[in-house]
Structures are given as structure tokens and as C-alpha cells.
């Protein structure tokens, strides 16, 4: 088997700009899903019962439906159903975030519930309000305790972006497919791209693990 690395070298700019789109999409998905997931959790834990029931149903449904299915539904069906026509990038951002938010919500809930009840009592004994206790005592500790799981979510956010190739978002996976098709060197191209993904995702998760090892005591009550 002969490797044709010139196929990769000739299109490195094209591939790298794809990586840029991947990172942008992943960053957007991370921010949006963190925001939405936290709101979902707060609504679930502290909202009225009906809201809590709806949120649990939403979370469990997203845990049941593949992200690809959410993605194609948002891209192909949503415009017809609502008239709202989103470009591929925005469709991907919306659907990947909606899906990941359910997982974020599970992680945030586990984090909040893992904080010892005695910590809440200590805040109450000081005369703090429920909101103050949540903001100043529970959440800061929960965030620390969530870090390892947050690392996996971050890597999931990057990995999920590759699925956006299905609706032609010009991210790394899509670009790789294009280059592979043009150059007839799929083995070289896909192998290179696989290494590229690894070089992005591996340090991300490792970095978070390292940070966690340094700050874990802040969440240990």
C-alpha cells in the first residue's frame, strides 16, 4: 500500500479552515448547552411541579433520540413546519445544543445533589435565603464537583460537530470527505483528520482533568 500524503499537504489550508468551523461550532454548542442545561436543572429542581415534569420528559427524550435525528429534523423539517429557514451552521448549533443540554442538565443536577445537605443547613443557620445559598454555597461547590463530567461533555461537543457533515456544514469532517473524494486518497485524508481530532480533543479532556486535580478540594465538604 502506497501512501499519498501530497493529497493531504496540498489541501491543508482547506482542512484547517474546516477545523476552525469545527472549533467555532463546538464552542457555540458548549456555551449554549451549558446555559440551557443549567436553566433546565434549576427549573427541574426548584420550579413548579408541572415545569419539572416537562423538563424531565424533555431530558429523557433527548437521551433516547440520536443527535443525528434531532439534527436532520431541525434542518429539514423545522423550516417546513415553521417557515423558519436556518442555514446549516445555525441548524447544527441549535440541534446539537438542544441535545447536549439534556446531558448537561443531568450532570448539573448530579453536581448540585452531591453537595452535602449540611452545607445548606450552615447557610440557613447564617440566615441566608434559598437563592443566596444556591448561588454562594451550592453552585460553586457543584461546579468543582462537575468538572470531570464537564470534560467529557466538552469532548462530546467537539465530537458531535462531525455529525453536522450530514447537513453540509463546512466543518472538518465535511472538508475531509470532500478532499478524500477529490484526491482519491481517503485513507490518508481520514487518517490525518482522525489525528487532528485527537490532537484537539485529547488535550481538552486532559486539561480539565488536570485543573480538577488542582481544585477538587474546593468542592470537598
Amino acid at each position: 500500500m502506497e501512501l499519498n500524503l501530497s493529497a493531504v499537504l496540498d489541501s491543508w489550508r482547506f482542512l484547517l479552515s474546516g477545523l476552525g468551523v469545527t472549533l467555532l461550532l463546538a464552542a457555540g454548542v458548549t456555551v449554549l448547552s451549558l446555559l440551557a442545561g443549567t436553566l433546565l436543572t434549576l427549573g427541574r429542581l426548584y420550579g413548579p411541579r408541572w415545569l419539572s415534569a416537562i423538563i424531565v420528559f424533555y431530558i429523557d427524550s433527548m437521551r433516547a433520540i440520536p443527535v443525528l435525528v434531532v439534527l436532520v429534523w431541525v434542518y429539514f423539517a423545522l423550516p417546513i413546519a415553521t417557515g423558519l429557514n436556518l442555514p446549516p451552521f445555525w441548524s447544527a448549533l441549535l440541534s446539537l445544543s438542544a441535545h447536549l443540554a439534556a446531558y448537561v442538565a443531568e450532570v448539573v443536577r448530579a453536581g448540585i445533589q452531591s453537595v452535602r445537605p449540611g452545607q445548606v443547613r450552615a447557610g440557613m443557620a447564617l440566615g441566608m435565603t434559598r437563592a443566596q445559598i444556591l448561588r454562594k454555597i451550592v453552585m460553586p461547590q457543584a461546579v468543582v464537583r462537575m468538572l470531570p463530567a464537564f470534560g467529557s461533555l466538552l469532548s462530546l461537543a467537539v465530537k458531535d460537530t462531525a455529525i453536522a457533515t450530514v447537513i453540509a456544514v463546512p466543518e472538518l469532517m465535511r472538508r475531509a470527505d470532500a478532499v478524500a473524494g477529490q484526491t482519491y486518497a481517503p485513507v490518508e485524508v481520514f487518517t490525518t483528520v482522525m489525528i487532528l481530532y485527537f490532537l484537539v480533543i485529547f488535550p481538552l479532556t486532559r486539561g480539565i482533568d488536570m485543573i480538577y486535580r488542582r481544585v477538587s478540594f474546593l468542592g470537598r465538604s
Binding site: 452535602r116 449540611g118 452545607q119 443547613r121 450552615a122 468543582v144 478540594f217 474546593l218
Partner: peptide, 14 residues
């Protein structure tokens, strides 16, 4: 207006 001290301290670790 009342202070409380707990068996397990319950200091805020963060």
C-alpha cells in the same frame, strides 16, 4: 440573631 456550630463543622470548602 442566633449563631450555630455543627458537629461536622460544615465550613464552605470553596
Amino acid at each position: 440573631r442566633m449563631g450555630m456550630v455543627f458537629q461536622n463543622f460544615e465550613l464552605f470548602p470553596h
